[in-house]
Design a protein around this nucleic acid. Sequence first.
RNA 1: GCGAUCAUAGCUCAACUGGCAGAGCACCGCACUGUGACUGCGGGGGUUACCGGUUCAAGCCCGGUUGGUCGCCCCA
Length: 421
Amino acid sequence: MSQKISGVKGMNDVLPPAIAVWQHVERTARELFRRYGYGELRTPVVEDTALFVRGVGEGTDIVGKEMYTFLDKAERSLTLRPEGTAPAVRAYVEHSVLNQEPLTRWFYVGPMFRYERMKTGRYRQFWQIGVEAFGAKEPAQDVEVIELAVRLLEGLGLTGITLHLNSIGDDTCRPDYQQKLVAYFQGQRDQLCADCQTRLEKNPLRILDCKNPQCQQIAQGAPSIQDSLCEPCRVHFAEVRRRLELLGISYQLDPRMVRGLDYYTRTSFELLADDPALGTASTVCGGGRYDKLVKVLGGPDVPAVGFAIGVERLCLLLEKSGKVPDSLPDLFVATADAVAEDAATRLVASLRGAGVWVETDTRGGSLKSQMKRADKTRARFALVLGEREIAEQAAELKPMAGGEPTRVGFTELAGILKPQR
RNA sequence: GCGAUCAUAGCUCAACUGGCAGAGCACCGCACUGUGACUGCGGGGGUUACCGGUUCAAGCCCGGUUGGUCGCCCCA
């Protein structure tokens, strides 16, 4: 025996049967996105490092300390993508998509990479399902994107999810607000935690969602961004809210929810799970409008909105809720004697050709061990084939869950089994 | 990056104040079987995460490393 090699820290294998949750999530998402006219985008897992430095922001934790960055053999600095928006924008700009269509709606599913300390619902390789819509500045687009996120979780049968909503203004009103904020916190500077004192200079908005109780207390009295929005931002946000209500999507206004990145504008939202199983990783989905980003990445001045969902977190919630539909074989075929072998092989092949999910034990063995195997597969029906059945071209179809067997001719089998799926 | 806590068979866990590393489940084989979850008997599986130290003797005590889990930070 050679030395065992284990997987990389923070990166997980998913194997059957646990993969069923993932497949269910993906299937549900793809079907939903199709109905809203979103097309799938696939970009490489590796990008030019500069894309994230510029697109995500130099001052962020992600760029500052969490990226998997390396030099390839030609000394290019490459990075394993830490998120999906910057690559989507890169592709949008690179293929001049705006020149082909004024409105573009994409979704993506794939792994992201961040070098972080692990905990529940947080891994170094994690999957995101994301949506990006380019070209519409209208509130209707914000709402369509939010609706998509909400409907996906609804469609998966999840409850206990709250939509948190805020508008963080734009270039014209946010600077004013930041000034007001700084002025307010400056007065109580020494009562803030050490982190927040630095934030006061670098990113005052972030003080608002500091978890420190003392800071939270102080933040309570801070001016709300809602009172500082400029007229266009105020109107935009009011329309977003009106349209959400129109669709019956409830939300919680959260004026202290902010985004750390400069290019985010106006609408900002998160979906939070109240399930303690996620611990502090309760954010299942985060998104918002980023009207500046396309231009920042060298493209035209195109408005955009999007979100990203953490698939592992979603799966954790789903596994716990037990709302994953079973996917089970239709039939298990066992052989009782050697005479039946060849005929059974052909019967199984033709059933499979007709679309029936058939399991067998390719190791053969005693009927008992085959039936044990059948039990394991949780097939709906079992069929035992021997000399007698082959001669008569018919067999007892036995429901594995219990109940009376029925005598069925081989030619009828596919018809009986297939429609039940 | 900081702090807490844990690590024994594939899984869940035992092993007294330091004294030959075990059970259940799972897996495999045989017997009995024309029909499986609660038939009988048997079997394979471990350098007790790794490295070092103390001791006549370490799964147990001490130090380090790695990995898991949970807070802080940040996020999805």
